[in-house]
Simulated assay, not measured.
Amino acid sequence: MGSIYLPRAAGALASAMSNGIPLLVLATTRSAALTGAAFALEWLPRLAAVGWAGSVVDRRGARKIFHLACVAKALVLAVGAVLLHLHPSGTVTSVTVMVLAATTGFLTQFAFIAAEAAGAAAGQRAGRGAHRVQAVLLGIDQTANLAGPALVGLILLAGPPPLLAVITLLSLVAALLALRTPPSPEPPVPGPRGWPGAGLLTGWRTIRSLPALTWLVAGLTLSNLPTGLLQAAGPVIVVQHFGQSTTAVGFVWSAAAAAMLLSVTLCRFALDRLGLWPVGAACAALASLGCLAAAQAPTYRSYLVLVAVFMAGEGGMTVVLRTLRSRLIPPEAFGSALSASVLILVLPFPVAGVLTALTPPDALGHVITICAALQGLGLFCTFARLRADPALRT
C-alpha cells in the first residue's frame, strides 16, 4: 500500500487533473480550434518522450524517474499558475496554457512509464495473482479519473490559477510518496543507451516476438482513435452542441470513470472464472457498440450514459492488456517494451486532436461514427485471431 499504491494514487490524480488542460484552454480562449490544438499539443511531446522514458526507466529505476518527473511537473505548473494570475486574459494567457499542455504532457509520460514499470514488477512478484494487482492499479487510475474531471470542473469555477495550484500540490505529494517505492533491481542486461530510438527498437522487437501481445496492441490502437476523439471533442460537444457548462464536461468523464471502475472490479472476478479471451471479447463488443451509439446521442444525458458504457468496455480490455503484458514481457526489457507499446497505443490521440481542430463542430458526430466503425472492425479481427491463442486461454 505505502510503496506502490499510494504513490500511484497521488500521481494518477495529478495526471487526471492535468488532462483537463484542454478544458482550461476552452475556458480561457473560448476557441474550439485551440482546444483541439491543445489536445494534440499535449500528446505530441508524450510521443516524443516515450522512447527516451522507457530506456531511462530501465537504466535509472522507476522510483527515481517517477520522483524527478513529479517534481519537475510541480515546478512547471507553479510557474503557470503565477503567469495566469498576473495575466488572466490575452496573448500571454493563450501562450501559457498551450505551453502547459506540451510540458505537462511530456513530464506525465515519464511519470506514467515509471509508475507502470513499478506496477508490473509488483504484478510479477504476485505470480498467478498478477491480474488482481493489475486490476487494483487500474482501479486506482480510474478512481483518479473519476475524481479528476469533476474536481477540474469545480475548481475551474474559482479560476485557472487555483486549479494549477491544486495540481502542483498533488504532484509534490506524489514525488514525496515515490521515495517509499522499493528501488528497481539491477537488470541482467543494462538498458539500451544512446538515442531514444534504441529503446524503442528493443521494445518493438520484444513485442513482435509475442504474437498475442502484438495483436492486442494493434486492436487497442484502433480503439483509441474514437477514445481520443471523444476526449478532444468532448468540451466542444458538451458546451457548444448540448449547451452545457464546463462543469458538465467533467461530469461526463467522472461518470465514464465510475463505469470503468465498476467494469474493472467485475472483470477481476470474471477473469478468475472465464480467462482473458472471453472477458476481452465481451468488453470489445461493449466498447464498439457504446461508441457507435454515443456518436449519435440526441441529448446530454444519453451522451453521458453512452460514453460511460463505452469506457466500461475500454476498462475491461485494459485489464486484459496489462495482465498479458505483465505475464509475457521479461523484467529486464519491460521499460523498453512498455514504451514501444505505449507509443503505438497513443499515436491516435494527437491525430484525434488535429481532427477536432480541423472539423466543424456540427460534423464531429459523423467523424466519430466513422472512427467507431473502424474500431469495431479492428477489435473483431483482433479477437477472432486470438480466439485459440494459449496466452489468452491460460
Results as ranks from 00 to 15, higher is better:
T265Q: 11
A48P: 06
V279K: 14
L261H: 08
A259K: 09
A135Q: 01
G80M: 07
L324A: 12
P45I: 06
A372Q: 02
T108H: 10
I237N: 05
G313Q: 01
V76G: 04
P88M: 06
S254R: 02
A308P: 01
T299N: 08
G219N: 10
Q124K: 15
S288L: 02
R273H: 06
V25Y: 05
L83E: 07
T181D: 08
L26P: 00
I140D: 02
G280C: 11
D141E: 12
A135L: 01
S245Q: 01
A284L: 06
I329C: 04
C267N: 12
A120N: 08
G203V: 07
L338V: 13
H85C: 04
R30Y: 00
T168W: 10
A352Y: 02
S3P: 08
P45C: 12
A126E: 15
S223Q: 13
I140F: 01
F269L: 04
G119P: 08
A101D: 04
A333P: 03
G90F: 04
A38G: 12
T356W: 00
R59T: 10
Q296S: 12
A16S: 13
L34Q: 06
A281K: 04
L306I: 11
V305Y: 00
Q124D: 14
G129M: 08
R46Q: 14
G313T: 02
T93P: 04
A391L: 07
V99R: 03
T221I: 01
L164N: 09
L172A: 11
V252A: 09
G219F: 03
P88I: 02
A40T: 04
A175L: 02
G148A: 10
A232H: 05
A363I: 00
L386F: 15
A158H: 05
P7L: 08
S223P: 01
S171K: 06
E186A: 12
I207Q: 12
F383A: 05
L164V: 03
L200V: 01
